[in-house]
Design a protein around this nucleic acid. Structure first.
Lengths: 192, 192
DNA sequence: TCGATTTTATACCTTCCGGTACAAAACTAG
DNA sequence: CTAGTTTTGTACCGGAAGGTATAAAATCGA
């Protein structure tokens, strides 16, 4: 029964391009014209396929978590608490200072989306971050190798504070090598 | 010789209100209507007194550094490296989680101002942050109480990474008490 | 009181925003 | 080939953005 003109573009590839633009320019800083130009589709196709700008962003954020930022989830599978933390911090440096990707972190950038209309986007980003923090805390509660006196919930928040800071440094122009040294020092301070 | 109708508002007070709005809503998220409403002046008065939106932001950022964020400069006067770092980190928590001020840090928020027209604003914020980092590095080079192996430049960057992360956590909804515990743990990790 | 000068208030300008109506094009089923 | 369906391209909509022209209002020196 369904005939219809076939879609002339790859929706997944288009979503990847949208992700790239949102990551580089932020939600508010990205106009529909920016999106359609990057995705190589026209406006009605975007709306028919992805809903609207806000829904498109939501899908881009989900893709970000499963793709470029997948290390954050995988890090929790490491066998020791220390290695979990190390993978998160070192992974943040690599993620936010890539040569072929925008600098900074989409989730951190999106928390700073301002203006009345971007409130739902900010909430999405906050929810995503909160979920990551809960998962890390749960994982650290299982760890037996934390230095004495380190509480899992506070350590989880400190680790995310450091990875958030790394993202800010990366958008501020700090290079990968410099941030690797920062990560080295942070890990040394945390675990000796 | 100069006659002329007298100005009917306090320019400093108006600038403080503009700072408040930029801090809470970001550069791009703040419209001229938001500004004139908050400052209780009309549009031509804003342009005659402060130039344009971008110049107004520059003056608000300078006021931020001398006012709410003055602790960052004063911290460098502490007598030991450790106390310098402690004042910076604890000061960041208090600054970014104030009851009567917006949460987060204006300089960190502004680094995330996106879109083509806000490039100069981002550059202003980056320059401001870079100057602060140089000053901290210089100060830590004078310190004699750093733990062995801590290089002043890397430590300065790590400290700013942590304060940046605190600002991100604050805009993400983390409360003052929680961030105080994070600061405690960070300082304990850094200095034992 | 009378110009000269500066600020006020209103109303407007251009441009771009996110979002959509509509018709031509490209396909499948019969 | 036709009927039905979906996507494509273009052109447009209302609204809000940053910024400004203009004239009334309020002060000064003379």
């Amino acid at each position: 029964m369904p005939g219809g003109r076939p879609r002339s573009f790859d929706a997944d590839a288009a979503l990847d391009r949208a992700l790239e633009v949102f990551w580089r320019q932020g939600y508010e800083g990205t106009s529909l014209s920016d999106l359609t130009a990057a995705m190589r589709i026209n406006r009605p196709s975007l709306y028919a396929t992805f809903g609207n700008k806000e829904e498109l962003f939501g899908k881009a954020l989900a893709r970000y978590a499963d793709g470029p930022a997948a290390h954050a989830g995988e890090a929790l599978e490491a066998s020791t608490g220390r290695e979990v933390v190390e993978r998160l911090i070192r992974g943040a440096v690599e993620l936010t200072t890539g040569d072929d990707t925008p600098h900074g972190c989409l989730a951190v950038n999106s928390v700073h989306a301002c203006g009345p209309d971007s409130t739902p986007v900010r909430h999405k980003a906050v929810a995503h971050r909160k979920a990551a923090e809960v998962a890390l805390r749960r994982r650290l509660e299982q760890a037996t190798d934390l230095p004495p006196g380190y509480q899992p919930d506070t350590l989880a928040r400190l680790v995310h504070t450091i990875t958030d800071g790394i993202a800010v440094q990366a958008v501020s122009g700090r290079g990968r090598d410099e941030l690797r040294h920062v990560a080295d020092l942070a890990l040394r301070a945390l675990f000796g």
